[in-house]
Computed example of a mutant assay.
Amino acid sequence: MFQKNGLLQTEEKNDALLKMAEALEQNSRFILQENQKDLDTGKEKGFSEALMDRLMLNEERIHEFAESLRLVTRLTDPVGEILDEWTLDNGLHVKSRRVPLGVIGMIYEARPNVTVDAAGLALKAGNSVILKGGSSAISSNKAIVSVIHEALDQTKIPRDAVQLIEQTDRSSVQAMFQLKEWIDVLIPRGGASLIKTVVEESTIPVLETGTGNCHVYVDQTANVKKKAIEIVINAKTNRPAVCNALETLIIHRDWLKENAASLNEALQEHRVTVHGDQAAESYFSNAVPAGEVDWTDEYLSLDLAVKVVDSIEEAISHIDQYGTKHSEAIVTEDEKKCTHVSKRSRCGSRLP
């Protein structure tokens, strides 16, 4: 299975991804029916608003799944890319070339979108993938994978290249940790406890991802007319339950003195609860005192930690201490500060 995928041509892999995208859109009604079963179970179990949001699908989100697969077809095929080459003194010519990883095990929580993302990226890179999603999304994941299988049956890629573990008990996850003869690498995607468990207990190599305690720093040069406040509101409220949502807002004191009223009004309008340090409490009318947990944990809700600083170095120091190296942003008109943050940041995504 894996060997065959690694030998496929780029056009053959892209054809499979396009057929998967089309099938997801054509079978959206079936997927939504199955997703409703997960939502009903979630309501019965009292799932949080954040968890229900991650779990919920609609026509727009399924269309986004399909578009993400189409986007992957436009990415350069990494298989066979020559990274470096040289000739040894004895005349032997050596090339360093990208090859598929093999069989990827993906362990994740209540995120049906990961089922599509993982399948698409794995197949494009010539890999096979074994999916272990959270029990709360089992009906959604089974529906999505069944649609993917029907699409793959019309392509050069065998349906078994994408497999879903349907057992929902924890023992199935523990069993995956021991399958080093069958799985080449594990990738956990989810909260800190999930990632920690996989890293500490797996006998298989692990590609560790970061949890999403994400920061936005508003510099004293940030221009309100150029959407500084809109950036903050969008980063916090558009999808507060996703891992790259804004959790801590760091604001330069000089900017806050001039724009506190407008920012406070916008946050209240969007029902955002501010958890502020001592300085922030004096600017935000309904702020509650921030404790250590407000700097360390994800809210995944309409709560926002706010810290006031007097310099960019103080902001970077806070991010270095509490950030998870996921996604950070600076809002500024000073290009040198953008460059400074990019060089200092070790996160996966930087948005200067």
Rank of each mutant, 00 (worst) to 15 (best):
C214N: 07
N5T: 15
Q9A: 15
T73D: 12
V309A: 04
A329V: 02
M1P: 06
R189A: 11
K142P: 05
A280G: 12
N35F: 11
S96G: 02
D89E: 09
S345W: 13
K325G: 00
R61F: 09
G6R: 13
T332G: 06
K336Y: 09
N238W: 14
R253Q: 12
V274M: 11
H340F: 05
H93V: 09
N259T: 11
L186K: 04
N238S: 13
Q174N: 12
Y299I: 03
V94A: 07
D40L: 12
Q163R: 11
E25D: 08
V293S: 12
T197P: 04
V272G: 03
A287T: 04
E298G: 01
V309D: 00
T237G: 02
G323P: 10
T168Y: 12
E166I: 11
A125N: 03
T221G: 06
L302Q: 02
I229F: 01
L39W: 06
G348Q: 07
G348F: 08
D84Q: 08
A16F: 13
K307W: 09
E201C: 07
E85T: 03
R159K: 15
A161R: 01
T209I: 00
A228C: 04
G6L: 14
R344L: 11
L17F: 03
A287E: 04
N127H: 13
G80H: 04
I82A: 01
T273P: 02
A287P: 05
H215N: 10
E109D: 06
E208P: 07
A279H: 13
E230N: 11
S262D: 10
R271W: 11
